[in-house]
Design a protein around this nucleic acid. Sequence first.
DNA 1: TTCAAATACTACTTCTTAGTGGTAATTAAA
DNA 2: TTTAATTACCACTAAGAAGTAGTATTTGAA
Lengths: 132, 132
Amino acid sequence: MVFSTTTQYALKILAYMNEHKERLCSAKTLSEELDIPYKYLTKIMTKFTKNEMIESIQGRYGGFKLIDSKIITIYDILKLCDGDSAKACIIGKIECNEKKKCHYHDAWQKPRASIKKDFLDADLKSCGVKDS
Amino acid sequence: MVFSTTTQYALKILAYMNEHKERLCSAKTLSEELDIPYKYLTKIMTKFTKNEMIESIQGRYGGFKLIDSKIITIYDILKLCDGDSAKACIIGKIECNEKKKCHYHDAWQKPRASIKKDFLDADLKSCGVKDS
DNA sequence: TTCAAATACTACTTCTTAGTGGTAATTAAA
DNA sequence: TTTAATTACCACTAAGAAGTAGTATTTGAA
């Protein structure tokens, strides 16, 4: 189980944008600051924009920014980049449920539930913020 | 976050072998029963054998079997197929720890701990067995 | 209105994972 | 000792993810 390169990039990018939400972030800046290949990064940004996770402003002095009103969870990010992170069955069995369990069903339940719940709770804008 | 095809195959294979530990399982049988491409399966089996996760018996009437004395956890299987499933930092930051946390550190702790603990506890031979 | 700096788009290359093909080596039964 | 069914090995192809290249489009300032 691994988070793809794209997912890791995505998480880094959004965390950076969140830390600098007062200004636009250009692809050039993001690429340099986060050490992500420029062209690959722009691809990811376009994807985010199309999925309305962020807003893009074109033309000179343009860039990207988070949408104030929008809540983005870690789960949303993973889902967009890698697909559903907490699939019901670890071995992809269709008929795997509480009544008819695959061999690994019980062992997978806790990690899976934790991933789903904790990542759905983890709003990008607040998850790095200390409780006070 | 996704379990690779190889990992899913591996989990299926070992669960099947565990359910039939009284006899040898040939690659042909495993391939047919579990619907895994034969040639790809034999590659995985060789890998398992080399890592001493299972035992292989060559020649006619040969096949594969679990080693009675050997404990195999889900964690072992994931590690062999996909690498460490519970990396310390979700975005691969080297300096990410309790003192200096990355943006996602706290959100990742519970799922990560659950994966590590519950998968290390999940012995192949007993994880599908009901408590009695 | 021109221009430079930015995003958007299309297509390609490279690398890794998944899957295939052929053959050698092994082994127990007949 | 022959044979057939098995694992082991080597090399290839196919598909998908990661990364690159070039160009079109957009846009605000000079």
